[in-house]
Simulated assay, not measured.
Amino acid sequence: MSTTDTAADFSTLQLDVPEGVQSISITRDFAATPDKVFRAHIDPELFVKWCGPDSITNTIREWNATTGGNWSYVSSDDRGEYAFFGSFHEVRENERIVQTFTFEGFPDAVNLEILTLTDLSDGRTRLMSTSIFDSLESRDGMVASGMEHGIVEGFNKLDRLLAEA
């Protein structure tokens, strides 16, 4: 499965969901330098502005974006609240973030996320993210939840946020 994000004319969102493999990979280019894209991922005040679909509001409960730190936030919409938490295993400035991700509604389903930023020059950055799930069922459940819609809208919000910076 792959999709194209038409909101940004210079980039596409590549979403790969390989059959029979417990992972999802995302590739997306941004019209911003790696330091700005990185900061938007680790600064809680910026993160809540762009993460997820347009219909949600995020609230940080805990945020320590350092190697060995923890994070937790709640996403709210007209249907309710959805809480998430994890640990930052590696935070390498402007290059890489490795973290766990758990939805409190399914606490036994933990995934590992590896995000890498590559400087494309001319003020552009390629974000590559791989999520490794504990099972195919967990991965397929995430896909069925509307994850793709949330990623596209979230990255569109991130584009606007980066343009303002």
Rank of each mutant, 00 (worst) to 15 (best):
S76I: 05
F106G: 02
F84G: 05
G105K: 10
V110C: 07
I132C: 04
G123S: 07
F88V: 11
F85N: 13
F85H: 15
D78S: 15
Q99T: 04
T116C: 01
E81K: 15
D108R: 13
E104R: 15
D122Q: 15
S75E: 04
S75D: 02
Y73E: 05
S129Q: 13
R96T: 08
V91S: 03
G146R: 11
G141V: 03
T130I: 14
N70W: 00
G80F: 04
E93D: 12
T118Y: 06
E93W: 00
F85R: 14
F103A: 12
V110P: 00
M147H: 06
L117S: 03
N111D: 06
V110F: 01
E93V: 15
D122H: 15
L112C: 02
R92E: 08
S138V: 07
I114K: 06
S121D: 08
T67M: 01
S87F: 06
R126M: 04
S131R: 12
S121R: 13
E104H: 13
H89L: 13
M142V: 15
Q99G: 00
S72Q: 13
F85V: 12
S72L: 08
G86E: 02
S129I: 11
F85I: 10
W71G: 02
V91P: 01
V74Y: 02
L112V: 10
D77I: 10
D108Y: 02
N70C: 09
V143K: 09
Y73V: 14
P107D: 10
E90P: 05
L136K: 11
L115D: 04
T125Q: 02
S129K: 13
S135K: 08
G105T: 05
F101G: 02
E104W: 02
T125L: 03
W71F: 15
T100R: 04
T130R: 11
F103T: 04
T116P: 00
I132Q: 05
A83S: 13
